[in-house]
Amino acid sequence: MKIKVGDFYYGAALAQIAAHPVLSHVHSVAGKEGYYQINGDKRLLIKYATADRGTWRFTVRPDDLTDVSWSADYIVWFALVCGEETICLLNDEEVRELVDVEASGSQWISVSSSNGTSMKVAGTTGRLKHRIRHNAFPHKLLTDGPEPNKYSWPPLSRLQFYTTWPHIVRSTVDPFFDLSDALTGDIGFGDEKTVYMGLCTYSPDWSVWDNSTLKKVEKHIRYDLNFDGFDVAIERASPEVIEQGSGLFVQRCSDEFLWKLTITVRE
């Protein structure tokens, strides 16, 4: 298959996401070129301009703004690849300052930067009052923004499930992953099911597996299963402290912590 010009520019953005030291899960969104789903809860539209340097101008079409104007399920971002120089990252609020998200015709966004200074951004309907830093992409995309809702798993998490350690039977980065839907379909009255669940998170807000962070995850596990009529006994299967050299240390949240879940139908 012939390589499209746009693929080189999309690749420039996706390579930086893949190289960032946090968990990233990327899928293309069907029906729109340069549109990707990141870590289950974010949508990223990548646009590019081929000018060498100075000022880059991008065309924004009505279908580029569909999710910005109505989606409540995703945090929407724009990544504007400026030639071979830099990538300008805009969140949905910034996009709204630059263009009319309800417009029926094409609009524009321009990015300018000189001598390595932060980027100035203007659009059809206005100009951003603040500048965009070059190092905002991809860090801000992967770490900023509110959690989708209070019942989601920690940001930038990976959940893995085992029936017999260490054989993985399921792995997901979905922040809305439902334990009841996934684990309880074969449990009837009087039955008991044991599952090992591992979780790690690369969120900067989650640093170590201390009693506070462990209890937050365990509260989520209980809520998820109790809500659908199941009881669960939770046992911490990983050590809460590990020995390194001459000292004992708590584990980092970027390392998987393992729980043993014993699930039964609530009587």
Rank of each mutant, 00 (worst) to 15 (best):
A103T: 07
D67P: 03
C200E: 13
K120S: 11
S104E: 15
W108F: 14
G188T: 13
S212Y: 10
N149S: 14
Q107L: 03
L44D: 07
L89I: 10
S28Q: 14
V232I: 01
S203V: 02
S112T: 01
W206G: 04
S203D: 10
I263G: 01
G126T: 01
R222K: 11
G40H: 03
N211R: 04
G11H: 09
A103P: 05
T125G: 07
A13G: 12
D186C: 10
I87R: 04
I168K: 13
V250G: 05
R53V: 02
S212V: 11
K216Y: 13
L98C: 06
S207T: 09
T86M: 06
E97Q: 13
S71H: 04
M119F: 02
V250R: 09
T50D: 06
P21A: 08
A182E: 14
D7L: 11
C253P: 03
D224M: 07
P166F: 00
R127H: 05
P148H: 08
G190Q: 07
A12M: 13
R133F: 10
W77T: 10
Q37E: 09
D210W: 12
E235R: 06
G198V: 00
I75T: 13
Y74R: 01
F8N: 05
L141M: 01
M1N: 11
T117V: 12
D181M: 13
A51K: 11
D228M: 11
R96M: 08
S114R: 14
G190A: 01
W56N: 08
G126Y: 04
D144K: 03
S113R: 08
T262A: 07
W165I: 08
T66V: 15
G198D: 03
E33R: 00
H27C: 13
S110T: 09
R252S: 15
W77C: 09
V241K: 09
L98W: 12
Q37R: 14
S28C: 13
R236Q: 04
V29S: 10
V250M: 06
R43W: 13
E240R: 12
D186Y: 10
K4E: 15
E33G: 05
D67C: 02
S203K: 07
T184F: 00
V95I: 14
F177C: 03
E97S: 12
Y202D: 13
E218Q: 09
A12T: 13
S112G: 02
A122I: 12
G229A: 07
A30S: 14
G245M: 08
K215S: 12
K47N: 08
E256T: 05
P62C: 10
F230T: 07
D178I: 05
R53I: 00
V208R: 05
P166N: 05
C82M: 12
S112C: 03
P62F: 00
F8Q: 12
R43V: 09
V22D: 14
F189C: 04
W77M: 07
K140E: 14
E33A: 15
F189H: 14
E218S: 08
V68H: 00
K216P: 00
